[in-house]
Every structure is written in structure tokens, then in C-alpha cells.
């Protein structure tokens, strides 16, 4: 489990993370969402021990990470722009990582090279941007980490490779109980893969919630009433996050248990009622608006 308690990180006059509290369960995939400069990469670098928190406590599996090799060997960080040694090939980098990480799995590395169809002896400088990301990702997986931290890992990947990455992550999480933290500024990328989603904005953690709970808790319902029903009547009985009313036709974003909502609406004898599936992006947009943030700014 990853636990952040009152974490503060400053860069000069800028506070990149401001008293962040977060818990990420073991064996889960956590999505870190936020616009550029929100503090996502900083948070990941704190988790892997590249940065040291100015305040607060950060533990991985119950122990601090910074300058603790026993803890750091469980964590691998794939940066948004992975670093490769000058003139290096994948094999060169594999030799480096085998020096740095005690659990580096050479055979798994070779498997991954085949899976991603990357040539181990080709100079990485000649790789495309997407191939470099794949190289960083596969090298990270080959270290057999318990915690894999991915910074914008889907950028530059084609849809097929995205699917490969997603599958690999799911396999590792399912098979080895690996914990993954993925940062992204794109909600759609995380929709299908994440268990938990956190939103960072200007160094503050706005939101952290289990994705299933989140999706199960917010509903979009279109309903038509025969009787005259006012919105205020509905608001008195239901938790209305957003609404659109055209005469007797209501489009409602409601929070709560779906069965209870349905029973509540039944008292006004609706002529028609339809539950429309919400995308993760829509859920967050409504959640953020309720919290008073302009979601368009947060998610671009």
C-alpha cells in the first residue's frame, strides 16, 4: 500500500504539492489525473524516491522510500520522457538495469522485447517516440516491480500498443498483485484500466475515489412526467448534481443508489424513464462542478 500523509513539496517559491493525503491500495491501478503542472509527475518522483518530501510522511508498504534501497527495489518509475544512455541499445539499458535492480528478469525482458517487437541491439536513439516509451515500459516491467509508476505512459502509443500495455498491466496486477500508478491528463485513457482515480489540481488533491464506486454513485437519467413536477420538488427528494428541464422532460444527473432513485421517481408516476450510461469524463465533470471547480480547466 502507498500512503501519503500531509505531503508537501516545494520548488523554490512554488508549492508543487500542498498537504496531499492519499492512500493507494496494494494490487490496484490508480489513475492520477490533472492538467499540466498539477503535480502528478512530482508525486510520482516522490513515490520512487527521486524527490524527498519537504513535509509529511510517504510510505510504501509501510516504510519510507527516500534513500531506502529495500523499499526502492520494489518501485519502478517510467518517466514521461524515459532516459537512455547515449548511444545505448535496449541490451545496454538492460545491463544497466540489471546493475541497478536486483530483481531484473532477463528472460522476461527478452519476452517483452519480442512482444513489443523491439530490436534489443538497435540504438535507441533511432527509435520513434512511441518505441522509446515502449522501451522504457518494458525495461521497467523487467525489473519485476511491486509498484510501477507510469508518467503519461500512453502518450505516443498506437491503439494496438495501448491495448498491449493495458493487457500487460492487467496481467501483472492480477498475477503478481502489482500496484500501478498512472498519471495522465486524459481521462479517457484511464477509464478502462483504473480502479481508483485521483485528481490533482495546482498541487492539491481534489478527489480520490474508487472508480466503480464513483461510477455506481452517479447516474444520468432522462425522465418524462405526466403530472406537473418541478425541479425543486425533485431536489428536495434527490441529490441532483446537474439538471436540464424542457417542460415535462427532465435530464438529471443524480447521486445515490440507483434503486432508491428509481423508487423516489416512481412517486411522480413518470411516463418514461431511461438510465443513460455515463463516461468517466462526464462523472468527473459533474463531480468537479459540484465541488466548485471549472472542470473544463482541470481536464482541458
Amino acid at each position: 500500500m502507498i500512503l501519503l500523509q500531509d505531503i508537501v513539496k516545494r520548488f523554490g517559491d512554488i508549492t508543487a504539492l500542498d498537504h496531499v493525503n492519499l492512500e493507494i491500495k496494494k494490487g490496484s491501478i490508480c489513475g492520477l489525473l490533472g492538467p499540466n503542472g498539477a503535480g502528478k509527475s512530482t508525486l510520482l518522483r516522490l513515490l520512487c524516491g527521486v524527490f524527498r518530501p519537504d513535509e509529511g510522511v510517504l510510505t510504501v508498504s509501510g516504510k519510507e522510500v527516500f534513500e531506502q534501497p529495500e523499499q526502492k527495489q520494489r518501485v519502478f518509475f517510467v518517466a514521461d520522457e524515459p532516459y537512455f544512455l547515449p548511444q545505448a541499445t535496449l541490451d545496454t539499458m538492460a545491463r544497466l538495469y540489471s546493475r541497478l535492480y536486483p530483481n531484473f528478469d532477463r528472460s522476461f525482458y527478452e519476452e517483452l522485447c519480442e512482444l513489443f517487437r523491439l530490436l534489443p541491439k538497435k540504438r535507441i536513439a533511432e527509435f520513434s517516440k512511441g518505441m522509446k516509451r515502449q522501451a522504457g515500459f518494458l525495461l521497467g516491467l523487467a525489473t519485476r516491480p511491486e509498484y510501477l509508476l507510469l508518467d503519461e505512459c500512453f502518450d505516443g502509443l498506437d491503439p494496438v500498443k495501448r491495448q498491449v500495455v493495458r493487457k500487460l498491466l492487467a496481467d501483472q496486477v492480477g498475477g503478481r498483485d502489482m500496484t500501478v500508478v498512472i498519471s495522465s491528463h486524459n481521462l479517457r485513457e484511464l477509464d478502462e484500466i483504473c480502479d481508483t482515480v485521483c485528481i490533482l489540481y495546482q498541487g492539491n488533491l481534489l478527489y480520490s475515489k474508487d472508480l466503480d464506486d464513483l461510477k455506481g454513485d452517479v447516474h444520468k437519467i432522462q425522465v418524462v412526467f405526466q403530472e406537473t413536477v418541478t425541479l425543486s420538488q425533485l431536489e428536495r427528494s434527490l441529490s441532483v448534481m446537474a439538471s436540464e428541464v424542457r417542460g415535462k422532460f427532465f435530464t438529471l444527473i443524480l447521486r445515490g443508489d440507483m434503486e432508491q432513485i428509481r423508487q423516489t421517481l416512481e412517486q411522480w408516476h413518470p411516463v418514461a424513464m431511461e438510465i443513460i450510461p455515463l463516461t468517466l469524463e462526464e462523472v468527473f465533470l459533474y463531480e468537479m462542478e459540484v465541488k466548485g471547480y471549472d472542470a473544463q480547466i482541470i481536464f482541458g
Binding site: 518522483r45 520512487c48 544497466l96 541497478l100
Partner: peptide, 16 residues
Amino acid sequence: NNRQALDVFHAAPIRR
């Protein structure tokens, strides 16, 4: 003095 390189070296399980 290379931020990208530090993501590799200082993230590794090796003390400074």
C-alpha cells in the same frame, strides 16, 4: 545535472 537521467539513477534502489 540531467533531470531525465536522475529519474533512472536516483529512482534505483541504490543510496546516493
